[in-house]
């Protein structure tokens, strides 16, 4: 079996904060898996940052799980912020789809 398309790493911060870093590629083949992994890390945290800075590829399947993660976090009372490189293609995708407003407030983009 080839190496995983994407890898997820979580880092606990002060209090109930967590930073989840996704790297690699997210497409229709691994989107659900990535979603589950991320959700596991975010669950129970007061605030979470989903860092997509190391994502090399992401398409609409990836965008869809971002939306789901955000909705779930809201429902659970977790403040979830999506961090993407300001000039990267993910930011471009978010802007194209209008998701940037919901997922990555500009003042927190890195």
């Amino acid at each position: 079996m080839t190496e995983p398309l994407a890898s997820i790493r979580a880092e606990r911060g002060h209090g109930d904060t967590v930073t989840v870093t996704v790297s690699g590629e997210v497409d229709a083949s691994n989107a659900e898996e990535v979603q589950r992994a991320c959700a596991g890390h975010i669950r129970g945290a007061a605030a979470a940052v989903l860092d997509l800075g190391a994502v090399r590829y992401l398409d609409s399947a990836g965008l869809r799980i971002l939306v789901i993660l955000l909705q779930d976090a809201r429902a659970a009372g977790t403040r979830l912020r999506v961090s993407v490189p300001r000039d990267g293609f993910v930011a471009e995708l978010l802007e194209l789809t209008g998701l940037d407003v919901h997922l990555a407030p500009p003042d927190h983009s890195t």
């Binding site: 398409d59 609409s60 965008l63 293609f89 471009e92 995708l93 194209l96 789809t97």
Partner: peptide, 13 residues
């Protein structure tokens, strides 16, 4: 044709 985000992504990029 793809729907939802897909079509927007292709057209946008």
């Amino acid at each position: 044709a793809p729907g939802g985000y897909g079509i927007r992504v292709i057209r946008g990029l």
